[in-house]
Design a binder for these strands. Structure first.
Lengths: 343, 343
DNA sequence: CTGTTAGCGCTTTCAT
DNA sequence: ATGAAAGCGCTAACAG
């Protein structure tokens, strides 16, 4: 196999009869140097003719910029939501930056992958996407430390940090939950059962507060909070038990759509009519919501926007070191479908 | 903000009282040079103490290896399947390589992103994941050309190429479809309706052939092939029409699970009992299959393995330039659930 | 066994 | 308006 030599800026320079510096100026469109149009044309021609591609590693070494950002998420990568986030990120970073997927798996160096990548300059900054289901508090402190003390450009996506020292883009779970509960109440539901996961995260606290506030604003609404195990079998068992006492309530709120799917499924099994007997609403949506029977009413999370805004923040930090940290909160949107009914 | 200087191998060398070369030898565990244990210890200590991380850009420039691979997929990134593939890739490439997401969006240079990345040495090789729904044939030729003529390390995942010059990892859609149809026939179904997308890809051809072969192997089985529009509304309309003629068949095969969801949903609407009146099976599964009512019987695609095997092949090419191209075909697995019934 | 040194390909200051 | 040259941090061939 013939190993052909790489075309360098030197080659282009020779071909065009100029120096390497000129080539660099022209191809990078450097401000502050004015170059004759004819020279410009010549160089561009030569580059095209020779098939010149600047070596990004050499550029990176020189400029001290990898032109890549790392995305790290402890969340189950299988989650569809992760992908929507990615889409948003992609839309915001433009053609010049690339996305490197990193884990927080500890590597040979004894450091999490994202950290090593940064220290080794493979990435210029980091986007943390929270692991919704098991947000470990100790880790957060590490992250914060990195961001503040080590001055690593980091944006926290879907973290409710309330820390003015760091950039974070959050989803307004409180308001989403508030909207969902209010919607139910407006539709005449008086006894509401609220299925929450059996662990406590900032996110779930926000939701709980949202639901409670909505309930407290009205007289005579009864709210029953029921923690549900994340274990599949236990979840099913719990849902069946709850459905067997359907006379005690008229509506169900679930923190996640997955729980709502289970409710819908088991309701069918038990011949309980949704929404006639029970209204069901989930505080997070997914693509499948239109395929359940009946179609699931949800509070949609702005995942694309989450990715987009987070990436925008990161880009700002990267291009302007003096960017002030910002805490941004994104609203949810209620999507009414067939699992809830009006009065 | 104090801009602290980067720790270089020079610093480590000084700290340990050796030369940079020695540092490099030790930290990279270079074969063929033997170094005193004490020196080794000293250097490793020094590196740790100083917090030394080799600059990957400098390494890349020197070694001519980016230690990154690019993944490109025209398929809707929102697809959940994409993620499983990614998981598989990650599992195969190990800690030393990273994954860069690339599009085939044409950049400033007039070349698709993945191509530029390769030419600019941001990635060492490319993993193409087919765009299932609209596999454009002209593009394939470009890809093949790149792989063969330009000698770019490429692995085609989920492409049915049958070209011995290139590496490709394919899913055995034929056999999957054959299994699904056989399963239905074994369960006593005599009239089967087969819903295919209204466009023609290699993949769909394989499936069609699989279904047909299974049918032809048995006497007295009637097969009705019906193309379905990918347009959502039209799909629903078509499904309703088909369900209205439910006396003409006893089982439905769909190419995708999404179609099957629509069938299941509309069957509920029309009060048709699945699987009692009609058995339903999809030739591709998804996470949601356990939440439909009834739970959907599917032919599961080996997406994780697809990523894994593809990445393995690419790694082979990268480490050994003489690796012979291989065409690998991965089997599907039938997952029996509640939307089909036995005799 | 360890040190010296020459680049890898690029940007960018300084000089012309 | 353009060129010469230094040097980013590393590896590896060669010297000792």
């Amino acid at each position: 196999m013939k190993k052909l030599k790489r075309v360098t800026s030197m080659d282009v320079a020779k071909e065009a009869g100029v120096s390497r510096a000129t080539v660099s100026y022209i191809l990078n469109d450097v401000q502050g140097v004015s170059i004759k149009e004819t020279t410009k044309k010549k160089v561009i021609q030569a580059a095209k003719k020779l098939g010149y591609y600047p070596d990004s590693m050499a550029v990176a070494l020189k400029t001290n910029k990898a032109m890549s950002i790392g995305i790290v998420s402890k969340r189950n990568i299988s989650e569809q939501r992760y992908i929507k986030f990615l889409d948003g990120v992609k839309s915001a970073i433009g053609d010049n930056y690339s996305i490197i997927l990193c884990s927080d798996h500890v590597d040979n160096f004894g450091y999490p992958e994202y950290y090593s990548y940064y220290k080794r300059k493979k990435i210029d900054g980091i986007l943390f996407l929270s692991f919704q289901e098991h947000l470990a508090e100790e880790k957060i402190d590490d992250y914060l430390h990195m961001s503040v003390e080590e001055n690593i450009p980091i944006v926290f996506a879907d973290y409710h940090l309330n820390n003015q020292m760091v950039n974070c883009v959050d989803i307004n779970y409180y308001h989403g939950a508030y909207m969902a509960a209010s919607y139910l109440i407006k539709n005449g539901q008086k006894e509401i059962i609220y299925l929450t996961p059996d662990f406590d995260t900032e996110q779930e606290q926000q939701r709980r507060k949202g639901v409670e506030d909505a309930v407290n604003e009205h007289k005579g609404i009864k709210l029953i909070k029921t923690p549900i195990s994340t274990d599949n079998d236990k979840e099913i068992e719990a849902v069946i038990k709850i459905l067997s006492k359907k006379d005690e309530y008229s509506a169900i709120i679930t923190s996640w759509s997955k729980m709502a799917y289970t409710v819908l499924y088991q309701a069918q099994q038990l011949n309980i009519s949704i929404p006639d007997e029970i209204s069901v609403i989930a505080l997070a949506g997914s693509n499948f919501d239109v395929y359940t029977y009946p179609r699931l009413t949800t509070c949609n999370l702005p995942l694309f926007e989450l990715g987009q805004k987070s990436a925008e923040r990161l880009m700002n930090m990267l291009t302007d070191a003096n960017t002030l940290p910002l805490n941004i909160t994104l609203p949810c949107k209620l999507k009414e479908r067939d699992s809830t009914k009006g009065i």
